[in-house]
Computed example of a mutant assay.
Amino acid sequence: MSLFSYLLDPANWGPNGIITKLLLQHLYYTIAAVLIAAVIAIPVGIVVGHTGRGSYLVVGVSNSARAIPSLGLLVLAVLALGTSSGPIIGVLAILALPSILTGTAVGIQNADHEAVHAARALGMTGGQIVGKVEWPLALPLVISGLRVATLQVVATATVAGFAAGGGLGQLLISGQATQNYSQMFAGAVLVAALAIFFDLALGLLGWFAARKTHPRAKTRVRRQPQPT
């Protein structure tokens, strides 16, 4: 049996195909978890970065969240709250928080101090400084935090299969149980392809944000007078 047989089988694709169903479920887990984490982490990161207060809290939360065992937390959430998508998305959102929170706080805090001082000298309020100066300058780092968080969630959502939560990890679990290596291969390839897609998309978005925020200085080359 070819390793590609399960992946290339048309019956596994289409509206009722198992691959389509699990892929969409994996995408739903990823997007929902990252959005929830962003809604919480970005405002907190802006406040911390702008005021300079709570930096130690950010570091503590980030380190604590990264130390949480993903599989154990997922299994605990499923046992306590059931196999619905809510507990799984909640756990994934918790795991996505540190990267987004850190990226936002560091980006705001490290915004060009001269630009911030100039904005204050012009009489801008704190909200105006954040919206017109600090946020645009911090955007590349914010996107970088979102990028790291998204890749982590894509990988961790695979573990949801172990907790009977579906997603592409289900292909790995079912394939291992039935010794269907083609199915396991399909699951691994799809998870990797999804991670590469998000990495490239968010990396490109971050590149555009960086170019817009820090455009290359254009230097004009003056013509030297020709000797007569």
Rank of each mutant, 00 (worst) to 15 (best):
P215H: 01
L27Y: 14
T219K: 05
P225S: 10
T102E: 11
W13D: 05
R147H: 04
P136G: 04
I36F: 14
S62W: 09
V148F: 01
D9G: 08
L24C: 08
T150P: 03
A164W: 13
Q109I: 00
L200N: 01
A186R: 03
I31E: 10
G60E: 13
A188L: 15
I196C: 09
M124E: 03
L76N: 04
A105Y: 11
W207K: 14
G126Q: 09
A138F: 08
M124Q: 10
D112L: 04
V78E: 06
T178Y: 09
T158L: 12
I108W: 12
L101D: 03
V91P: 02
A80W: 13
V47C: 08
P215V: 09
W135T: 09
S2C: 05
S70K: 05
P15M: 12
I42V: 14
S2F: 15
Y56L: 14
L35Q: 02
L81R: 13
F197H: 06
V39Q: 03
A105W: 14
G169S: 12
R120G: 06
A105P: 01
A11H: 10
L122D: 10
A111N: 00
W13I: 03
V191D: 02
P87V: 08
L122W: 02
Y28A: 15
V59T: 14
T125G: 07
G126A: 07
D199T: 04
Y6A: 05
N63Q: 14
Q183A: 01
T102S: 14
S174T: 11
M1C: 11
L171R: 07
G123P: 03
F185H: 11
V189I: 15
K218T: 12
V48L: 10
L76F: 14
A119G: 01
V34H: 08
L73H: 09
V142F: 06
T102K: 09
I18S: 12
Y56C: 02
I42Y: 02
A149L: 04
L101T: 07
V153A: 05
H50N: 12
G123E: 03
L202V: 03
A210D: 15
V148A: 08
A195N: 04
F198A: 09
Y181A: 11
S84D: 12
A192S: 13
